[in-house]
Amino acid sequence: MPTENRAGPIRLVVTLGLAGLFSGLVLVSVFLATQPLIKRNQVEALEAAIYRVLPGAETRKVFVEQDGKLVEAQSADGVEAVFAGYDPGGKLVGYGIPAAGGGFQDIISLIYGYDPYEKQIIGMQVLESKETPGLGDKIIKDQNFLDDFKALKVEPEILVVAPGTGADANEVDSISGATISSKAVVKIINQGNEKWRKLIDEKTESEGQAE
């Protein structure tokens, strides 16, 4: 404990200023040192997730939007892109569509697989979320919830219904205790569909005619 009873205001400001300065320096250097690794981890996680939401796919191509059309691109770095997955025979399995939006706490980012032939979702995985541990974070692991995304019709628009009542092919049972997070996931997917589905469907149709 300091020996003097009252430190002057200048001393207080200087102490806190120095503490903040050193803390800032440490944080910036640790941030710079860990950022490349964290980025790489995220890329690897995305890569693994693409194949998980497109069952059967073994290779993938990147597509970006250009003048209202999907065109192939070399990398998805820094641009919005979708990933077309192909099975070993070269047949298209579907498109992995990354999407993000507001959850209960913070942005939820996820990727889902879309099969343009059947017009249905064939898989979904949450990539990053800060939902309430034990409640909202069930969107990551709850098997019943994830199973709802294995053959989910996208027309008409996907709906969230109360747990145990989802019967129709376009309905998802919300997780009890995590209604807001469940709804957020479906909303994010619907927004992703709005953005990408028309492009993907048009491309699939034109390819079908060319064959």
């Binding site: 300091p2 207080l12 102490t15 440490v26 860990t34 690794l37 964290i38």
Partner: peptide, 29 residues
Amino acid sequence: NLIPKQVRITTFIIIIATFVTVADLSLQA
């Protein structure tokens, strides 16, 4: 002995928060 009594809690929290962020980033990496 350098931390004035009036701002000790604030200073402790700055120190703790710095270590926590370092731990957070390292685990993430």
